[in-house]
Design a protein around this nucleic acid. Sequence first.
DNA 1: TCATACTTTCAATAAATACTGAAAGTACTG
DNA 2: CAGTACTTTCAGTATTTATTGAAAGTATGA
Lengths: 179, 179
Amino acid sequence: MNDKDSADPLALARDEFVAQWGAMGSAWGINRTMAQIHALLMTSDAPLTTDDVMADLKISRGNAHQNLRELAGWGLVRSVIRKGERKEFFEAEKDVWRMFCIISRERKRREIEPALKALRACEEQTRSLRGDKAAAFNRQIRALSEFVGQADTILDRISRSEGSSLLPLFLKILGKPKN
Amino acid sequence: MNDKDSADPLALARDEFVAQWGAMGSAWGINRTMAQIHALLMTSDAPLTTDDVMADLKISRGNAHQNLRELAGWGLVRSVIRKGERKEFFEAEKDVWRMFCIISRERKRREIEPALKALRACEEQTRSLRGDKAAAFNRQIRALSEFVGQADTILDRISRSEGSSLLPLFLKILGKPKN
DNA sequence: TCATACTTTCAATAAATACTGAAAGTACTG
DNA sequence: CAGTACTTTCAGTATTTATTGAAAGTATGA
């Protein structure tokens, strides 16, 4: 039997998931292929090689390689070496909460922190300017940078926290909406 | 004096902010120009016309028009008509918390909900399949869809909540990290 | 040391996305 | 109704981003 029988409902569902995860990724600024590889590894019972990924997604070696490295750079995927095997295997972090923490930490580090730094510099540069326009501008930038700063801190603390019990806690705090 | 004197520190800071907001937007899957127009309007003391935006960002009419419409579609910008003026003016929502709520709601609606629907369909399609692999796949998809579902609910409740007092509350709950 | 198995790089190319500008459309105004 | 002011559309073009594939690089082991 073919490893990827097109009548196999599991394979079909998995393909669907891979496609969906890819689409979701690209909506959030993540390369589609990278997200697809991630989806593939997340739902694989065993680590895969570059060639497995190439074959499954029908992509080139360079592409598979580059995106696997990038996923490893994020910490979402790690490489596994098997005794007696020369090939490199890759496996994904499967725990959803840990995945979330990794993604939060990395986006924070790569995108939020530099933006926040720039916002704060911008605030500082306009703090002591005279005139209504300058004051209004400074106020707006300050509001933004305070907000981004708080969000950054919250993300940081959530992603450092131990269990995945925070989500239920937040749900409880927020309660049911009135309408 | 030129309206945009390149020695004017306010204008410089604003340009810097526009550029930074544009870069941040594109990292998060938002068209750079759209984010720049948003930044421009957020820090404008008066509503602007399409021509103002074109002039400030040095972009074409079509581009300015299209992105202003899209921002209006998000609800981040609204059009203003002035008595005796035939031109259409645009102003941005300036309240940072409300901005956050709008963005949350829209991204939830446009990206999270469809993904969640697909995840749940995928879970359902594999729920009763036999075999270890199918069971493991189904478990993983279920974990993901539950997580995304909870996040979705939290985002929903936050963005429906009244004040902007939630962030400080969360900060308090999360407390100081141990390390 | 050579042959083999595998990984990495990167210039060329393809695909996706964003932008332009001019023409067509619409709505005021006198 | 004609002229003007403004808005909208969209085919063509430019830019950016992703992908390929082949060549170069590296490690293994006979």
